[in-house]
Design a protein around this nucleic acid. Sequence first.
DNA 1: CAGAAAAGTCAAGCAAGCTTTACATAAAGT
DNA 2: ACTTTATGTAAAGCTTGCTTGACTTTTCTG
Lengths: 65, 65
Amino acid sequence: MKNRLKVLRAEHDLTQAKLAELLDVSRQTVNAIEKGKFDPSLPLAFKAARLFKLKIEDIFQDEEV
Amino acid sequence: MKNRLKVLRAEHDLTQAKLAELLDVSRQTVNAIEKGKFDPSLPLAFKAARLFKLKIEDIFQDEEV
DNA sequence: CAGAAAAGTCAAGCAAGCTTTACATAAAGT
DNA sequence: ACTTTATGTAAAGCTTGCTTGACTTTTCTG
């Protein structure tokens, strides 16, 4: 699962720590998701989408065949 | 998290077992998600969206304030 | 109504998401 | 060079997603 979090953070001038705070998760979680260590839960994906006013699909991209 | 899986199943004339098979999960998992026992993972939400050719938001609705 | 199919549910166990603590590295600015 | 701020990474532990197996209840259908 790919995601555009890093870019969105840059566009909004947010640090991983600040984004984590806005999403109510730990900084390490934001980092791990950006780095592709694991996928976010669906509720967390919704939170990110709401925060950036985007569709989940505009932030996270399934890379399945 | 609410979802329209039951309705979508009905529209497509699918049993929980058949949908489970299409989504590559167990029948109990489909049932539990329909019943709101837990939320699906993001990858599973993507699979469902792809299957029904809908946006994740059209299947699952965040009910957060 | 009887039998079959579908849906509901429970328990035990493994896998994935997320937390905290802690430390390392990098970049950037005085 | 020193300090600060941001990022990367790791281990241990808790919680949630999902599995299998088994059983009950509901709904369809002949």
